[in-house]
Amino acid sequence: MSRPGLARQSLAILGKDLALEWRNRARVVAVVLFGVLVLLLFSLAFGDKGTQVLQVTAGGCLVIALFLSSTLSLQESFRTEDHDDALEGLLLLPTEPASIFYGKALANTFFLVALAPVLIPVTTLIYQVSLGPTQVLQIAGLWLAAAAGLAAPGTLYAGLTTRLKSQDVLMPLLLFPLEVPVLLATVKAFGLVFDGDPMGQLSSWTQLIVAFDVIYWCLCGVLFRFVVEEAA
């Protein structure tokens, strides 16, 4: 009997995760609200310094909102697998653990990308910045790259910590240091989009984010097997 390949198995896991999230939208709603709150809190912190300060910090605050929201979202991504030992059930099938990783990482990327249509307009409103169509496209592309860079290690660590009682504490502690390169590059790139890019540095920072995406997606796909199999 021929078995489905890695791509097909990953898509099956992705489809399952999207269907479950669609039926129980609690995670998406909570993560979006959290992101909006983070943006609001930063605006309150910087608001009394004047409009110019708000505008200058907009890009960085938007990235931090994505970053913190991603932690909340990624922590939740394995909750459905805990119930009834569903993850163990997937591992017992002759599936590649990498397909579980790629399916779940794709779903997590999708959820982080789904934050963009809310958080970007909220940022333009609260931080009083105006974005042209080109800037919106640039932000959208960067957002996708950043989301992928956050989702891959996040999915790996969520799988690693899912059975631990202290997941809520451990997950950010493990994840934040690993995500620093993507975070820094995204802050720089967003800043260039918001404030202008006279030196043409945007492509360099974008390439850096994409390079980390490639490294994380390849490395985490290989490591995921050890994370879930060695848990037993």
């Binding site: 489905p4 399952k16 459905t80 119930h83 099938l93």
Partner: peptide
């Protein structure tokens, strides 16, 4: 090894597709 939120048919579809 079941997912709350998936129907019986969807569960079988998932296993079958894997």
């Amino acid at each position: 090894f079941l997912y709350p939120g998936l129907t019986a048919l969807e569960t079988l579809r998932l296993w079958s597709s894997l």
